[in-house]
């Protein structure tokens, strides 16, 4: 007797859990031949709201972790991804890539995670400074994470786009809600499984699948989201996002021309985007003069 294949239910990822969308809606994902591969959750604004609550809840803990520990966890994500390479390659092929391109995309994704794992405890040294000031103060500036970041991930890339979007955000101590590619969502859901087995606390990364046209205005109008990164090039959506953000002073970053596979798509400046520089004036005795203070 022929065995029935057990198919995976592709669900969203909120607060370390894999719920279905609260709306109960879904859209069929088809391959090149037009066969339905899977039913994908069509997330609603309430899923987004729940994800923001989870991300806000996780922010304090993630932000206060030692930078070195965040680095370890990012490296762990890379390890887990490497171990499940074949599954990702198969999914990328299902979504239309040839095998060679799929292999390259997965390898690049792993490398990108390792790249940002390395930066976790180093960007602070690059971005912070001790400032010469005229008064007797020890004056220094340090980067602090912005908070909860909403991301609308690239549409054309299933895995690499997602990793490129998430890694710098969490490396910098932020938490995020990501809207995955609508036409290529399979890897996003599987990547959530990777995150869930990598000691990443629940809520640090939340992944939704669905439609940007429906969700982008909610992503940009939510008062409890501190920044939004937009990786697509729909001019109308960019305009709405900027307008909405002006009402709640969200920081907006648009990367509509990013060549994902190139080295230009990874940089400590992408961590810097989501850092706020805090300056401290610490009063001291006048130690600037030639005399020894002791």
């Amino acid at each position: 007797m022929e065995r029935l294949e057990v198919l995976k239910t592709y669900k969203i990822y909120i607060g370390g859990q894999f719920p279905r969308t609260e709306s109960g809606r879904f859209y069929p994902l088809k391959n090149k031949k037009g066969d339905v591969i899977a039913n994908i959750c069509l997330s609603s604004r309430k899923d987004f709201r729940n994800a923001v609550v989870a991300a806000r809840g996780a922010f304090g803990g993630w932000n206060s972790r030692a930078a070195f520990n965040r680095s370890q966890i990012l490296y762990r994500i890379a390890e887990m991804l490497e171990g499940r390479k074949d599954q990702f390659i198969a999914e990328l092929v299902t979504q239309g890539l040839n095998t060679k391109a799929a292999q390259e995309e997965v390898s690049l994704s792993v490398d990108r995670l390792v790249y940002y794992a390395g930066w976790c405890d180093k960007y602070q040294a690059i971005l912070s400074s001790v400032n010469p000031v005229a008064s007797s103060h020890f004056n220094f500036s340090v980067p602090e994470p912005t908070g909860v970041v909403a991301i609308i991930a690239p549409e054309e890339s299933s895995l690499l786009g997602l990793v490129t979007a998430i890694a710098p955000v969490i490396a910098g101590g932020n938490t995020c809600i990501v809207l995955a590619s609508e036409s290529k969502p399979l890897c996003a859901v599987t990547f959530a499984e990777v995150l869930n087995t990598s000691d990443l606390p629940g809520g640090v990364v939340n992944i939704l699948t669905g439609n940007s046209a429906e969700l982008h205005s909610h992503f940009s109008s939510h008062m409890d989201v501190n920044a939004l990164i937009y990786y697509r090039n729909n001019k109308a959506e960019i305009k709405t996002i900027k307008e909405n953000a002006s009402l709640n002073v969200k920081r907006i970053f648009v990367y509509d021309q990013l060549a994902l596979a190139s080295d230009k798509a990874q940089s400590p400046y992408m961590i810097y985007d989501l850092q706020e520089i805090k300056t401290t004036w610490h009063p001291i005795e006048n130690i600037g003069s030639a005399k020894a203070g002791y």
Binding site: R49, V52, H218, S221, H222, M223, D224, N248
Partner: peptide, 9 residues
Amino acid sequence: HGVYQSSDY
């Protein structure tokens, strides 16, 4: 107001 709120406010 029609938009989700933040406890910051």
